[in-house]
Amino acid sequence: MEITECEDYLEAIINNSVDGITPDSLKILADALNKDVSEIEGGLNALRDEGFIRISDAGAYPEIKLTHSGRKLGECTIKKHLVLESFFTEILGMDSDSASKEACVLEHGASPDTIKRLKNYIRERGARHRLHARNAHEGDGDDWHEGMGRNLSEFDEDDAVKILFTEGGSRRTDRLCDMGLIPGETITIKRKLSNGAMVVAIKSSEVGISPEIVRLVFVEKV
């Protein structure tokens, strides 16, 4: 069986929590995979031969269990599917049905790296989106006041600002987080150099931050 077909099978098994070969589950899988019920059992056997699932007949119906590699491959495919789908809907504005179908095709070809990058992209875009959406609801009672979030680099010495979010995904700003630069926290700019480097007062300490990190921080004036 082709690896892409295996991926589809595993995805369907996990998504539908299939744990045995019953008439019901065969029907579910057939629907999910867009295949005929008669094909499914053969497919499952092929999957077993590839080492992705184990089939054991314990009770009335044979039981299906995912092997380690099967679970891994399946979850990976699902993740790819989700990332692609949300890219299609959130960024490209496609409707969810066709987004899902498109994702089904592309998920097999996309490399983990592409998926990771896409995901970071969506996350950053999304953070800004969400912020703007929040700002659109003026005075809806929570902490987010009107006025757009602005980049920290736009502010000057002695300005006090409130952190909205930090960009840059992954581990880049972890150190900032640990030092207390988290959403909702107020910081004061103590020093700003012409290149944009800053010393800011966070909690009771002062921290020097270089310009490229400053640009990852989005704030609003207090």
Binding site: E75, K79, L82, S86, R123, G126, A127, R130, F165, T166, G169, S170, R171, D174, C177, D178, I182, P183, G184
Partner: peptide, 21 residues
């Protein structure tokens, strides 16, 4: 790993950031 990915998607923050906050 799978659950963390889900949480991060919902919060649009890394787990590290959520815990740190």
């Amino acid at each position: 790993g799978v659950i963390a990915a889900e949480i991060e998607d919902q919060h649009r923050m890394s787990v590290h950031q959520i815990l740190a906050a």
